[in-house]
Design a protein around this nucleic acid. Sequence first.
DNA 1: CGGCATTTTGATAACCATCAAGACGTGTGG
DNA 2: CCACACGTCTTGATGGTTATCAAAATGCCG
Lengths: 257, 257
Amino acid sequence: MRVLPPFGGARVLHDQSLHDLVASIARRGPLDADDRAAIRTLRYTRRIVQPQSYIVREGDTGLRACSFIVSGLAFRQKLTASGRRQIVSIRIPGDFLDLQHLFLAMADHNVQALTVLDLIDLNRNDLQALVLNRPAIARALWLDTLIEASIFREWVLNVGRRDGRGRIAHLLCEFAVRMQDAGVDQTKGYYLPITQEQLGDAVGITSVHVNRMIKQLVTEGLIAFDRRNIKILDWDGLRGAGDFSSLYLHLDRSERV
Amino acid sequence: MRVLPPFGGARVLHDQSLHDLVASIARRGPLDADDRAAIRTLRYTRRIVQPQSYIVREGDTGLRACSFIVSGLAFRQKLTASGRRQIVSIRIPGDFLDLQHLFLAMADHNVQALTVLDLIDLNRNDLQALVLNRPAIARALWLDTLIEASIFREWVLNVGRRDGRGRIAHLLCEFAVRMQDAGVDQTKGYYLPITQEQLGDAVGITSVHVNRMIKQLVTEGLIAFDRRNIKILDWDGLRGAGDFSSLYLHLDRSERV
DNA sequence: CGGCATTTTGATAACCATCAAGACGTGTGG
DNA sequence: CCACACGTCTTGATGGTTATCAAAATGCCG
């Protein structure tokens, strides 16, 4: 894997990742040839990040990059003063990592690698200028941040008003749908590279309780679970258990203004 | 109160509310004279809304307006299939109500009046066109949606990882700081026009438990509470109880890029 | 094989929900 | 001005869900 020096001159995206990046933005709104060309003028760095390492730390100021996931998973996380952790978002390939901070001077949460990550670090100043000068790109990326905000709202509901079993079921449904939308094959189920402790941090329960709730979902015949490999056996059942409806993900292209 | 017909021709904002609206946007980023003039060209409707009535309903498509709160309070709310309610956001004077839906084709949550509301309903198409053609306005309003997203994240943490007492304390702190920032005098405390049941819906506990937790905060000498009038007696104590830090509200102007 | 993180299981306790009923406050109509 | 009705607040009793503590089992990696 080739790693370029950080923003060393006006480098231009040129490999397969270019295609992924443009396609990912275009999923959120139509781009013309000029828009696509403008995206290719962005300075960037390509880099590999190891699991658990931080991409952004709460309190960081002067952010210089805005990252895009080529492959791997990441998550957003906040801590209470007493050290209890809450994962507030999981990011998958094709997602931007910190568009949420695009116009914020200080990071209000941590962004951490879940697996090995292959990232494109876009120059943040360039990206700001790009979106402010190109309405189609602004619309697409703004929409992207609005959809993530919708997911935050659903998570507030999930953590606030569903029991442990429902929370886990809901998370498993959401992940399945988003991975499907990102084009990942799931005929053999999917691998969720996350510890049960992290799963608990994502839904506001302890790892012990996560273990019991997963076991219950297996006993009920809704899922199969083997060393983080998840296969949904009864989609309607799991959807019911998690009270899941994908509307909040705003996936239907025709449904988007 | 004068109520204009919905978007009947190119009406122009002309009263005090114009000043409030422009000032509110300008709080998020500098606007030049042209930007301010452009805002005044937006078609709009002024209207009064009664408590509990809906401004937006989950599932709504073809939204035609985007509202701004001149006075009064509103909240965002979602329901589980079993009818359990979660309030995911409280909106105060000077806030936009559904900028979160600006580029979404379908509403993913309900927006409801908490008190009598005095609203400016901006024409949504006009507003979309405005932000896409005026970078400074785009930046200001985008920033606004990003800050609300930051609040959503903090609420996930609040509901997921703090106990009942902490959740209530945190909410009371947040409300105090935001009202202060909006310029509301709080020397005699503030009036929180919300039932204890709704308070519970905002922090994911029952009204019975809300009652007991408020009582406990009073007993501890952190707040005074009398018929929804709240006076914070020990700011540091309450801040500690709620594990509150205002950084996620991104209020400091100089801290904003 | 040893060392380590993670998963699993059991026992106990804490927090919060639920159920129920009475008190209080406010607005309405007689 | 009182009686009444209604929503909200308050309090008590009980139970369930989940946390906590502890320890053993499993899987993984060098």
